[in-house]
Amino acid sequence: MAAFIIANGAAAMGDDVTMFFTFWGLNALRKPENIKVKKSFLQGMFGKMMPRGADKLGISKMNFGGMGAAMMKTVMKQQNVTTLPELIQTAKEQDIKMIACTMSMDVMGIREEELIDGLEFAGVATYLGEADEANVNLFI
C-alpha cells in the first residue's frame, strides 16, 4: 500500500513513475478469480497458498489470522483512506508503469493471464535500467 501511495503522489506531481513487482509483490497484481492454467505441482501449490488480489493481502506480521487486516480496513474506511484496489486503479489512470518480474513469475508459476491488465513484463535488467535514469528510487 505504501508503494502505491508514494507512486500515486509522485505521478500527481508530474513525475514519471515505474513500479517493479517481484516475488510476493506480484500477489497485489493477481486477479481475484481463479484462472485455470497449466502449472507444475509446486507452482500450483504456490498459487493456492498465496493471496489472489489486492483485497486478499494480509497486513505484515499484524495479520492475526485475518483480524488485523479487517481491523485496518475498518479504520481506513472510517478515515476515508483510499483502498489498495483504488490506489492500483489510480496508478493505472495516471499511467504509472507497472512491471511484473518475469523471473519471479516463472519461479512462482504465475502466468500473465492471472495478473491484472495493463502490466508490462520484464526482468531485473529493465528495473535497473529504469532506476539508473531515475532521480529517486525506492525499494519497499
Rank of each mutant, 00 (worst) to 15 (best):
K61F: 12
V17D: 07
G58Q: 04
M72W: 09
E86M: 07
E93C: 02
G25Q: 10
L138A: 03
N34V: 14
F21H: 12
M67H: 07
L128M: 14
G65Y: 04
F21R: 08
L42Y: 04
G66T: 06
M49V: 06
G123Q: 12
D117A: 11
S60F: 09
D15F: 07
R111E: 15
D16Q: 13
N34E: 13
M108G: 06
G25F: 10
R52T: 09
G58Y: 00
F41Y: 09
P51Q: 08
A10R: 09
K73S: 11
A2M: 02
F4G: 01
T82F: 00
K48Y: 10
R111D: 13
Q79K: 15
M62Q: 07
A54Y: 02
L29Y: 09
A2K: 00
A134H: 04
D132T: 09
A122Y: 06
K48T: 12
M49E: 03
F20S: 09
D106I: 00
E114M: 05
N137W: 02
E33P: 03
I88S: 06
F139T: 13
N135T: 07
F4Q: 01
L57M: 15
C101S: 02
W24M: 12
I140S: 06
D132E: 10
A3T: 04
G53E: 08
W24K: 11
L128Y: 06
F23D: 07
E86V: 00
K73V: 04
I110H: 05
A131S: 15
R111M: 13
L138Q: 03
L128S: 08
M72P: 00
Q89R: 12
C101L: 05
D15Q: 10
A69E: 08
G53I: 02
A54V: 04
T18A: 14
G44N: 12
T83M: 03
I88N: 05
Q78F: 12
K38T: 12
F20E: 05
T102A: 04
G118A: 10
A54T: 04
G65T: 09
D15C: 11
V124D: 05
V75W: 08
P85A: 11
Y127H: 13
M71K: 11
Q94H: 10
K38V: 14
L26M: 14
K39A: 08
L119H: 10
E33L: 05
M71H: 02
G14N: 03
N63W: 08
L26R: 13
Q89M: 05
N34Q: 14
F139E: 10
I5R: 05
G68M: 07
Y127K: 13
V81L: 11
M71V: 15
V17C: 07
D55Y: 00
M98E: 02
M50K: 09
G129L: 04
E112D: 14
P32E: 15
K97T: 15
A12R: 12
I140Q: 06
T82E: 15
I35G: 11
K36D: 14
N63R: 04
A11I: 04
T22A: 14
D16T: 10
Q78R: 14
N137A: 15
M98A: 05
L128F: 13
N27R: 10
G65W: 06
D15V: 02
A28T: 09
M13H: 12
A134M: 06
F4L: 03
